[in-house]
């Protein structure tokens, strides 16, 4: 059981780049772990640290005013590339609870939502507004399905109802799937042809 997600208020941090891939979010050399935990320190490792391991002052994660930001605002097609669930694990472990981007890659989004990381596509005008208000507080309300900026901008969002319920209850697909086992066994027994 995860912590239920109903409402998040946080300042944002912004990476205004399109096509941020999962190899940036968590480089492959950190995937030899057999754990889910502890990946936050490697999140965006190649952008966040310089070759000598010191923090890269240019990267937003290292900015003083980004400390404590739980909402990441990023460009279109966020999370493209591999299916590694280590990407949402790393973001969550680094303190990110929501990603707002004009579009989000399918597998990453699915993985994120199943882990309680609210990955939400936003329309271009809201994205531009978020860029203008970078670092300001944003409220994401899952009950009302609304995003509220501190300048009064309000935008509504769609979310797949099942995933929304899982997020709000802190539950996941597992219990639902296990309850379907009789139907699954029936299906197996009644298939006209098994490829």
């Amino acid at each position: 059981m995860r912590t239920p997600f109903s409402r998040l208020v946080s300042k944002t941090m912004v990476i205004d780049q399109s096509d941020i891939d999962t190899d940036q979010i968590i480089p492959a050399r950190f995937l030899t772990t057999t754990q889910r935990e502890g990946l936050g320190k490697h999140c965006f490792a190649d952008w966040r640290y310089q070759a000598d391991g010191s923090p890269n002052p240019e990267f937003v994660f290292n900015h003083d005013d980004a400390a404590g930001a739980a909402i990441l605002v990023a460009g279109a097609n966020f999370g493209c590339g591999s299916s590694r669930e280590h990407a949402p694990w790393a973001l969550l472990d680094a303190g990110i609870r929501a990603v707002l981007a004009p579009s989000i890659a399918d597998i990453f989004r699915n993985n994120a939502l199943k882990n309680g990381l609210l990955a939400l596509p936003v329309d271009e005008s809201l994205y531009q507004r978020l860029l203008q208000r970078r670092g300001h507080a944003v409220e994401i309300d899952l009950q009302r399905q609304g995003i509220v900026l501190d300048d009064g901008t309000v935008a509504l969002f769609e979310l797949e109802p099942f995933l929304r319920r899982c997020l709000m209850e802190g539950s996941d697909d597992f219990d639902f799937l296990l309850a379907r086992l009789p139907a699954i066994a029936n299906f197996e027994g009644e298939r006209a042809w098994t490829p």
Binding site: S82, S83, E85, I107, N110, N111, K114, N115, F174
Partner: peptide
């Protein structure tokens, strides 16, 4: 299609 580890479990 590719899936994440949670779905591997499913």
């Amino acid at each position: 299609f590719g899936i994440g580890t949670t779905e591997v479990g499913h």
